[in-house]
Amino acid sequence: MNSDFNNKTVIITGASAGVGAATAKTFASHGANLVLVARGQEGLDSIAKELEKVTSVLTVAMDINNAKANKVLFLKAFEAFGSVDVLINNAGFHQRGDVALNQADKLAQMVDVNLRAPIQLSTLALPYMRKAKGGAIVNVGSLAGRAPLQGAATYAATKAGLRAFTYSLSDELKGSDINVGIVSPGPIDTGFIMSEIDQVEDIVFSQAMSSAQQVADAIVSCARGEAVEISLPRTSGWLTTIAYLFPTLRRALRPALYRKGRKAKEKYKQGGD
């Protein structure tokens, strides 16, 4: 597909803030028509007001756990712009804490938002992309999906599942001109983490912080078909691979990583870099 995305239709979930908003701005700069999805209309109106100066924008306030609403979403996008070319599954939910201390319904909600909904949305997108003779599906994963993470067991499981789905779907669609990829970042300097910093596991901050724009740029790269997966930071991707392959080493290094993360977290809380 055209690498500049000019006049392509891009659907972005979780688009009203953070990575979703940064991704919307980046695709807008490439000339894409935008379909911005989030639960709250107010946040969508804010980002749409800014981007309507640059490109055409359709906002859809909805819950991606609503299967019927998901089908209607694609109908609205196609009716507005005549195609669906790119789907960015960015919306996410994280109920932090150990499984034993958590609520079962909240953990189930994580599975719905982080895994079930992206699978359904991706499946719904494919007929439109086949009609357009090309397209892209990019999922926003996490380093937590590349190696087990205590204190975030269900979250890690959903992101690991999303990663497996991405690679499998990419293989299924080889030769179809539909690119499939996943961006797996560590901590990102957005409200998703920073507004709940005291609840975030210390070990998360043992990795360097990425910006929302860095993640957005990686999403665009995956949409272009430049990679099936991009980990941020890149060195953390290597470390998570080692941690997954050598669990004994991961457990041995965990105390040191917690100490490192705890120090970094305190700097972030004090406003340092």
Rank of each mutant, 00 (worst) to 15 (best):
K267H: 13
D63N: 13
D45R: 13
Q41G: 07
A157W: 12
T55I: 09
L149W: 06
A67F: 11
Q150H: 10
A100S: 13
R234H: 09
L101M: 11
A32Q: 04
N7D: 14
L51W: 14
M110C: 09
L173F: 09
A108V: 06
G92V: 08
Q199N: 14
L115D: 05
V111A: 01
K49M: 09
V72Y: 14
G191R: 13
R234V: 14
Q109E: 12
K267Y: 10
A17G: 06
I178Y: 10
G97Q: 12
R250C: 00
R262A: 15
A15S: 13
F205A: 02
G261S: 01
K267N: 11
Q214D: 00
V200H: 08
D63P: 05
L115S: 04
I230Q: 00
D98N: 12
K267D: 06
G161M: 08
L124Q: 13
A164T: 14
T23I: 07
V111M: 03
E196G: 11
I219T: 06
A160V: 00
Y167V: 03
L169Y: 08
G271V: 03
A160N: 04
L34H: 11
A69I: 02
K265M: 02
L121T: 05
A125D: 05
G141W: 00
S16F: 03
P118T: 04
I242S: 09
Y244A: 12
L173T: 09
L75D: 15
K265A: 02
A48N: 06
N179E: 08
Y167N: 04
P233N: 09
G151E: 00
L249S: 04
A38V: 03
A218K: 01
P247F: 11
F192V: 01
K260T: 13
N90P: 05
T190F: 07
E172V: 05
M110F: 11
G135W: 06
R130W: 03
N102E: 03
V228W: 04
